[in-house]
Design a protein around this nucleic acid. Sequence first.
RNA 1: GCCUCCGUAGUGUAAUGGAUAACACGACAGUCUUCGGAACUGUAAAUAGGGGUUCGAUUCCCUUCGGAGGCACCA
Length: 592
Amino acid sequence: MTIDQIKENLVDLLKKALLDLPKDFIFELEPPPQPEMGDLCFSCFKIAKHLNQSPDQTASDLAKLFGTKIPLIDLVDKIEAKGPYLNIFLEKNIWFETVCQQVLKQKDKFGHTKTGKGKKILIEYSAPNTNKPQHLGHLRNNFLGWTMANLFSTTGAKVIKANLVNDRGVHICKSMLAYQKWGQGKTPELEKIKGDHFVGQYYVLFEENAKENPELLDEVQEMLKQWEEGNASVMTLWQQMNQWAINGLKQTYEKIGVEFDYWYFESDIYNSGKKIVQKALKKKLCYQREDKAIEIDLTHTNSALRMRPCEYKKENLGKKVLLRPNGTSVYITQDIGLAKLRQDQFEPNKAIYVVGSEQDYSFRVLFKILEIFGFDWVKSSYHLSYGLVFLPKGKMKSREGEIVDADNLINQMEQLAKSETLNRNPSLSPTEVSKRAEIISLAALKFYLLKFTPSQQVNFDPQASISFEGDSGPYIQYTYARIKSILKKFDHKEKTNKIDYSVLGNKEETELFKLLFIFPQILEKSVNTYNPSHLAHHVLRLSQRFNEFYHQHRVLKAEPKLRNGRLKLIQAVAEVIKNSLHLLGIKILEEM
RNA sequence: GCCUCCGUAGUGUAAUGGAUAACACGACAGUCUUCGGAACUGUAAAUAGGGGUUCGAUUCCCUUCGGAGGCACCA
């Protein structure tokens, strides 16, 4: 027996009572809000409407059939009507055994599907600039991208993680010019500063000076021109500074445990897209203005493109220039080119862009243009838009230095975790404290950022936002370590071959089984809605339920039959916590 | 001005066209001879205002108020 088979059996049973069903009816079985109400429930609203009855009436009529005209199956203890709901009480012995065995047998594959088998999914995220270090907003992007990649992997799809590095343009030249003027030949190595921070200092320096000396902006434009012409000294400087910046960025990625399969650099591809626009012009999909600029008219368009889970109906996206009068490309040209490039290179079944909500409009434009240009594959593109991260003062602005720097934040959190760990375990060796503090602090940070629905904006208060208690990553890690501690204390030489699950079934145990039972559908929901927060909340809830259980019931001191059953249960809980955290990019600790 | 998104306890976040709106922080009151207190129990506390659709709306529609983002031949 499997969890899916349990569901199928229940649906078959219900179908016997429901001879007249609406077309394409989908049976939804979910745990009721209160434990006393049963293990699963079936709501009668839609059936009632179809039968033109009141839902309460339908539920009570149906309930009467079960156990009389329609015999119950072994799996089902009883079915009760309560208001408009049919509450199903399962035979716990079968149910618990099925759940436990499936979790422990499938281990880290529990809850995975095969819906994406044979498919390729491209997910592009992070997109750093090489003129400054990453900030808190980038962290949100990185964690979201990484977790979504993991989540899509659970469908059996091949996931390709791509990073597009923004390494050219005016802003890059700003830090270059500042270094050229005031750098005095310093290097990150000599100054002992992380490369991206080193370069970032010159970006800030430029902005400070440019306020009083606007002519610096002309110099930047001149430098950009020289860069595009391939001026040797400018290129040397550019390569040097980019290398510094990228080295720094890579250190941060390694620290936070984020990886990419493929790196794109804008400097390589910023001209791509020109040919596509020229072709489109020949096909009259766009037009040339009197001043020779090529433009596309998106004033009257209809769209059903999925930018978000909702669909847009009518759009007026305005007119967009695709090539400047002098023939040079604009940002959107490059995006068009890159989209095509990626499509040709990987031929993904789905392409996901993890980019902040401030670019919602840009993506609507991009997807619309690709659609008009006849690229059918754009229909499987998706902009995973996420809300900006705000500080109490407002939006983070890197030019003014009002940001939460990612590396600094991580370091601060780590220090905090160190003192917390040491407080709780005074005898621990310094290396062990450091090791644990790193894992705990990253868990706190990742869980904090992933528990938000992506579209929700985050208001980050550095003083108050992240804690190691309550609704937090470390709380979940602690729960895991606690279970592990119990399991370690148990002498596994004792034979526990035959588990009698009928001894389990108190309120706390049953609640745990319910959460394990619905884990696969939570996972699926997170994938389908591009929203890891469902998984984050579920694993938090599972941890809370375990701790409630822990405080009310003994495992090791229970009589052997009961103890053995509970051991299996908590093993399964630990497994699901571990897997969930892994998907969220959070490491576990056996002890903490 | 136009477009998009968002207003849920003191605070930060969940949830859903349907059962008593959940969780955490903070406050207050407890658990403490404990399989690890980064824990657990309890109390007070919320769907911005006004209309509409519906048997039923916090959810969908309209509107007022408030917040954010966008509307470049910048990236």
